[in-house]
Amino acid sequence: MKYRTFKFFVDFEKEEKWLNQMAAKGYNFIDFSLPGRYLFETGNPGEYIYRIELLKHLPNSPESKDYIEFLEDTGGELVSSHFRWAWFRRKSADGPFHLFTDYSSQIKHYQRIIWFIGIVGIINLVIGFYNLCYGLLLTGPDYGFFFNAYLAPISFLIAFFCLKVTTSYYFNLKKLQKESQIHE
């Protein structure tokens, strides 16, 4: 049986936690598509562990294909992908499943994500300001047309969440970097 739901995440760690909670209840995630549609298939509770990664390259690039093949040879499975985001899972019977198990690889992954979400946040901030100015000044009250200005809060809201998450990742990154100075 299939189950579909809509959810909006900016924080991939919260999303990962949610997918694993769903899997623990027997809802196995099988597909994602924008704007936030998650498709599940009912199965045995706790059968899978899910992990999310921001790949270095697009999933169908030779570099990523090689990586995904490697991961699948070690018992993992690529469940879904969107842009550079990839959802992986492995049977929990195979033991704990983490993609990155040392500080240096965890740090690199965080850095990739900070850049990615940070840029999305800044783009939304710019679009928000553009729409606000355009809506208020250029079309102006004389025209009675504020449409662009009405769009601005959406961009500001997205920008706010992206920059909030970026900041929290930044602090996590600093913590990891500090730890990595004294031990592995």
Partner: peptide, 18 residues
């Protein structure tokens, strides 16, 4: 590696690949 280290060192696929 897992056996040799008595389950202490679990290499994640991302880390191992890199």
């Amino acid at each position: 590696v897992k056996e040799l280290s008595n389950d202490r060192v679990n290499l994640g696929p991302g880390t191992l690949y890199g």
